Amino acid sequence: TIDFMSTATVSPGGGSGLTVPTVPVQEVGVVFDGSGVGATSVTFQLVNSSETPVITVKDNADGSLTGTTGSVAVSDGALDFIRVNSGAAGDTSVINDYTMTTDDVLTVHASRYDGHGNYIGDSPGTTSWAAGLPFDGGDLSAGVGTSVDFVPDNVGSVVSAVTATDGVEVDSTGTITVNPGGVSYIEAVTDLAGDATAGGTFSVIITAYDVDGNVKTDYAGLKTVNWAHTAGNAPDLTVPVVPVDGFRTFNSGIATVPGFMLVRAEAGVTITPTVDPLGDNMSDATPGVTVVAGIADYYDVATQNGGVEGADTAFTLTVSTYDEYGNAASGYVGAHTIDFMSTATVSPGGGSGLTVPAVPV
């Protein structure tokens, strides 16, 4: 009866084959021939190709009778699966769940393994690569090759973000989550649906972006915002209202600042915020705003001859309409019924002309 012992260890696993080596404990009745040679009928199987184990045999009845094989080289088995690994080559770590930004580069490659999880080598240069939505081939440095760089320019999160195909063998990464890169620029717009009305209030919306145009959703908290604008004063010298420079709160990359009021009817007015002038120092001008007059507030009335009218001559009036800031009320159009009143009095009389002034009602 022969006892067996071995230094063999388990395989890396991950395939369809055994992970534990087959080393019988003993065999009863090993028959030795006349030359002292005996062959076992039990079989052995080693599964870890990264080691060179030995097998020791011992006579169960006489423990002093032992022997040990030389180091056994364990060769790889047949290709069983591939795995998407980190880096450009080698038996590196698998890419499971991974978080990165659009500023980062993730280099991956495909490696071949036997059924016991032993590393055979890297997949060939004919290996094809694909990216899962919301990513696409444009986010990969190549469509074919042993390795590839994942260089996304958009944000998102998806399982099996990068997939390798080596013949009939296919493997994918775990869930890759891509967040925005570093803040790069801002865009400023108003919340106006159309033109601004003199005296009406509106807000300016500031959005922060990374270099690839993704909203910088983690750009948050208090940021200093300074303002510049091209708005003019109203005809009555009322000045436009712009919020004071100071801290504004960003939530998920966006700050909405209310309290703007323009007072002069004009076109092409821009408002420019500068965010974090001593740090990120990002500026952008809003699209040009057209300001129209407000509702009619008062008339300006002039006589036909500029305020000097002869007693013998009839004349007309010119009535001009203005909003509360002195802008011509261009929206006051169409037919309107006008009432007239005057401080004019009757003449001294005695002649051939009228004695009562003609002032229509």
Rank of each mutant, 00 (worst) to 15 (best):
F4S: 13
S6R: 08
G13L: 05
G13P: 04
G13W: 04
G14I: 13
G14Y: 09
S16D: 11
S16R: 10
L18E: 05
T22D: 14
V25C: 07
Q26P: 01
V30I: 11
V31N: 11
D33A: 02
S35I: 08
G36N: 07
T40A: 12
S41E: 06
V42I: 15
N48P: 03
N48K: 10
T52I: 06
P53E: 05
V54N: 11
T56E: 14
T56N: 13
D59V: 02
S64V: 10
S64T: 15
L65E: 04
T68L: 11
V72T: 09
V72E: 10
A78I: 13
A78L: 14
F81Q: 10
D91R: 08
T92E: 00
S93P: 04
S93G: 15
S93Y: 12
D97H: 10
Y98C: 01
Y98A: 03
T102M: 12
D103S: 15
D103K: 09
L106W: 09
R112V: 01
R112D: 05
N118K: 09
A130S: 12
G132D: 11
L133I: 06
L133K: 10
F135L: 12
G138P: 04
L140T: 06
G145N: 14
T146G: 15
T146M: 14
S160Y: 08
A161R: 10
T163E: 08
D166G: 04
G167H: 06
V170Q: 04
D171C: 07
T173P: 02
P180A: 00
G181Y: 04
G182C: 09
V183I: 15
V189C: 01
L192G: 04
A196R: 03
F202P: 08
F202E: 11
F202Q: 12
F202K: 05
V204S: 10
V215E: 08
T217C: 07
D218F: 01
Y219E: 07
Y219C: 01
N226Y: 15
W227F: 15
T230Q: 03
T230V: 04
T230H: 00
A231E: 06
V239M: 05
V241R: 08
V241C: 03
V242D: 03
V242H: 03
D245Q: 11
G246Q: 07
F250P: 01
A255S: 15
A255I: 08
T256H: 11
V257L: 11
F260H: 06
G268K: 02
T270D: 09
T270Y: 06
D276H: 00
L278C: 04
D280Y: 14
N281C: 00
N281G: 02
S283Y: 11
D284W: 12
P287W: 04
G288A: 02
V291F: 07
A293Y: 07
A296K: 00
Y298T: 05
N305C: 06
G307N: 02
V308H: 03
G310C: 12
A314I: 00
F315D: 00
V319E: 11
Y325V: 05
G326H: 08
A328T: 09
A329W: 00
A329K: 04
S330I: 06
G331R: 13
G334M: 04
T343S: 06
T345C: 01
S352M: 07
G353M: 06
A358K: 07
P360R: 02
